[in-house]
Write a protein that binds this DNA or RNA. Structure first.
Lengths: 343, 343
DNA sequence: CTGTTAGCGCCTTCAG
DNA sequence: CTGAAGGCGCTAACAG
């Protein structure tokens, strides 16, 4: 394992010159630069990251904290963040909170402050005061996606608006019997955007003079097709009390709803309208009306924001950037059929 | 940012004692140990990872190389690996090859050898000789999942056997018109398990005296439901030449096939049998017969293997561990209907 | 343009 | 059981 001294000796220059020649950060004559370069290549010299970090304080490494990696939203965000960061010459080390609360604690108190990362990006993580303090104390920039963190730049969509938008779309098409499927999350690990979307749903209902019925809100444990399917079967099962429209708070749930409707012999959108959230590729495939939130784009932006902050720590960036959402109307929604009675 | 000297001064001991007290690796009296501990806590002392690495050579960090993170297989493997490694006190830094070939090069020649990781886990990555050499030269343990790497311990399923098993299941039920949907991958980034599965498919066909028809093999660019759907529509469209069974080389493709069959008015399994690979949760939901390969389990095992290798570098581990697969029969396969004519 | 000189923060012999 | 001293590999002044 050739070190900088080996290169220096072999090239007949000092280690300082080697350092300068290789980093390109200072004046070195063309000839020596090329000489050093060739010697370094020949010896297979690779500078040690830890030595570099020790002396400069920079790691060229960014920590990304996510609640899970094997779920669509997080995997997509991670992919986007990683590409952006890699392109800028950073490595990303992954901190996955799904391993449990004891590991979570050691991540925030040990791993992250250990001078192993230059900055931290949190995705949908609800951080405690101590966790935030642990990071700010060691002076690490912190940005957050999908859930605001005290003192950190945040990018998020307006989930309440998303809920309202979806619901209003349904209302505008004459629906009054509108159910919603959300998520019931046991742990406190991350932001429950679903609850916020529910607020938007109820708000839209009330604004239209429709009283929300408790039985028309269903909470499922996971954002899976099977969960949407089961919930929809339940909702649609009772012929006297079945909704004519369902707002599913994710597209995966919406797909489940669509399949359940089909299996029940219902026609979508004639008998049932469905709207989801995400603009997941499945929503496109199944023709589901949805609220597009461009998850990949959010990931890219948060990474870029982080990089800018690293270049210029004191710059003015809005504390919260609201990422735009839009309704994409496909073939899963239509006017309520005329037999629909109010309530 | 309190350093070890601050703790030492505050506790009235030497830095050596602080180091020993905190690491617990050497004899320190109970009292001083507790004293140091409390002072460290009070000062919020966290040892610097880079200083630690510089002097010990260990990073407590493992690099995981994947072709993508936002695809089911890789996200699942990553989740499994991460949990295992975090539990053992390691961080994981992510090297995602999807950023392009130039970044790939810098990952293998710069990032990985830079003494930033103790070991490397490659997932389905086809490494070049230089890439392998770059890692072994810096003496980093290397293990691989899903594609064998010269000189590295590997865990993989037998993809050819998977192809045969699926096909033979169909043959044993009287099918002779058996199509297959595989993947056409443009890049050379990772192992094309699909081609190997195809070999197994053709082998099984020939062993049963059935000549594979070129038109009954379809290659799609991605493992998506929509791709399986489109390919199946094509395959099933020609009434004179339609297969009675389709082997889809992933469950996501198989779901697409199932949906296409339904849309064409075909009855599954009466008119069409379908078998997939993976045991994806969707296969369960849709009742699709599949080849189970327990991806999460594979991820766990490769991580454990890596950890053992780190503890004991010279131990005997088989070069290639073949991970077991099994056929799970659900409701998407049945005997061929009697009107099926050979060829 | 290049060499010399100090450390960065910690662990680890080696003596006590 | 504890302290002193050296050095891991590199970069950043400071001189030339």
């Amino acid at each position: 394992m050739a070190g900088i001294v080996d290169v220096a000796r072999e090239a007949g220059v000092s280690t300082a010159t080697v350092s300068r020649a290789l980093s390109g950060k200072d004046y070195v004559s063309i000839e020596t630069k090329e000489l050093v370069q060739s010697v370094a290549d020949r010896l297979g010299y690779v500078p040690s990251a830890s030595a570099y970090t020790l002396v400069t304080g920079r790691t060229k490494n960014i920590g990304v904290v996510v609640p899970y990696v094997d779920r669509w939203f997080f995997a997509t965000v991670l992919e986007a963040i990683d590409r952006e960061l890699v392109a800028a010459g950073y490595d990303v080390t992954l901190y996955n909170l799904s391993s449990g609360d004891d590991h979570r604690k050691s991540i925030f108190t040990k791993s992250l402050p250990r001078k192993r990362v230059d900055a931290v990006i949190c995705v949908s993580v609800k951080m405690s005061e101590e966790e935030i303090a642990a990071l700010t104390k060691v002076n690490k920039p912190l940005v957050s996606l999908g859930g605001s963190v005290e003192g950190a730049k945040t990018i998020k969509i307006n989930d309440q608006a998303a809920g309202s938008l979806a619901t209003n779309h349904l209302i505008s098409m004459g629906h009054t019997k509108i159910a919603m499927i959300g998520q019931s999350e046991a742990t406190d690990n991350f932001y429950k955007v679903f609850d916020v979307r529910k607020v938007g749903y109820e708000e839209a209902l009330k604004a239209a003079g429709i009283e929300p019925r408790p039985g028309w809100y269903r909470a499922v444990p996971r954002y899976a097709i099977s969960e949407g399917y089961a919930a929809a079967k339940n909702l649609l099962g009772d012929p006297h009390n079945a909704p004519t429209a369902i707002f599913a708070s994710s597209d995966e749930l919406a797909v489940g709803v669509l399949l359940a409707a089909k299996d029940l012999g219902l026609n979508v959108p004639a008998d049932l309208s469905i709207v989801g959230v995400d603009n997941h590729e499945l929503a496109d495939f199944f023709g589901i009306t949805t609220i597009n939130q461009n998850v990949f784009g959010q990931g890219e932006l948060i990474a870029k924001t982080m990089l800018e902050l690293l270049d210029n720590p004191d710059q003015k960036v809005p504390d919260i950037t609201e990422w735009p959402i839009e309704l994409i109307v496909r073939s899963s929604t239509a006017r309520a059929s005329s037999d629909g009675l109010v309530r």
